[in-house]
């Protein structure tokens, strides 16, 4: 039984079958990559996992509980943190403030009315946030206005915001999309480090094969809304079905 169990999930948008009978099992403490050509249904699947979309049929179980019908913030409280394709951070806030919001969410739940207490007095959470910033080498930027940072730093910050919550599962949606090679390699190193240090489960949706084969322990290939194969990276590399899906029938 994996940490995340997706069973017979179907999702239809009008005449388009976006997901057809998707089954997926992400085992604990592995890096599981979901790859596939454009339009394969990767993003739809991800949105079904985080509560943005509700599948027409099927079930999504996380840690023994169903996530279906729950809102994104409830699913986050269950232990799933999501990193977006384009970094989503609080641009008007400083880096440190960006880090404190997930700390408050983790400690106080989805709503708490602490209107009089001062942010400055939250010593314990500030220590936590600083420790996390140090882990991603951003401690020197803690008082920076986060909107003025480079894209790579925003990505780093977003990951730190997710990790400071100690999620059981980290979902990454094309974390290196649109990045230069050097930034991509930095991100890979960062993810490897996270994996070694924290031993968390990571599910990653990715286009870039270089990233996938450097990180993943299991790979699921999606094509036209259905999983083609699920295997280790070594076996996926030479798999004829995968080549066909990516390069078309002629190959």
């Amino acid at each position: 039984m994996g940490l995340l169990e997706v069973k017979d999930v179907n999702k239809r948008f009008g005449g388009l079958q976006a997901l057809g009978n998707v089954n997926l099992s992400v085992a604990e403490q592995t890096v599981h990559a979901i790859i596939g050509p454009n339009g394969a249904g990767k993003s739809t699947l991800l949105n079904c996992l985080v509560g943005k979309l509700i599948p027409d049929t099927g079930s999504v179980m996380f840690d023994g509980q169903s996530v279906l019908g729950r809102t994104p913030f409830e699913i986050n409280q269950m232990g799933i943190s999501r990193v977006f394709q384009t970094p989503e951070i609080f641009g008007d806030l400083t880096v440190m403030e960006n880090m404190l919001i997930p700390c408050f969410a983790k400690r106080d739940g989805s709503f708490a009315l602490h209107g009089i207490r001062s942010v400055v007095s939250e010593g314990e959470l500030r220590d936590q946030a600083e420790q996390m910033l140090e882990d991603v080498n951003m401690l020197d930027k803690r008082n920076m206005h986060s909107a003025s940072m480079s894209r790579g730093d925003k990505r780093r910050l977003e990951m730190a915001m997710c990790l400071v919550q100690n999620p059981k599962l980290l979902l990454l949606d094309e974390p290196t999309a649109g990045m230069a090679r050097a930034d991509t390699n930095n991100t890979i190193d960062l993810l490897k480090e996270i994996k070694e240090k924290r031993n968390i489960t990571i599910a990653i949706i990715e286009h870039d094969m270089h990233v996938v084969f450097s990180l993943a322990e299991r790979i699921t290939v999606l094509a036209q809304g259905t999983p083609l194969v699920e295997d280790t990276p070594e076996n996926i590399k030479g798999h004829p079905k995968v080549k066909e899906a990516y390069l078309g029938e002629a190959a």
Binding site: P72, N76, F84, A105, S110
Partner: peptide, 13 residues
């Protein structure tokens, strides 16, 4: 005000 989407995916309502 800054990013409501990020806030919901960070576990706050």
């Amino acid at each position: 005000k800054s990013n409501q989407q990020r806030l919901t995916y960070t576990g706050m309502n």
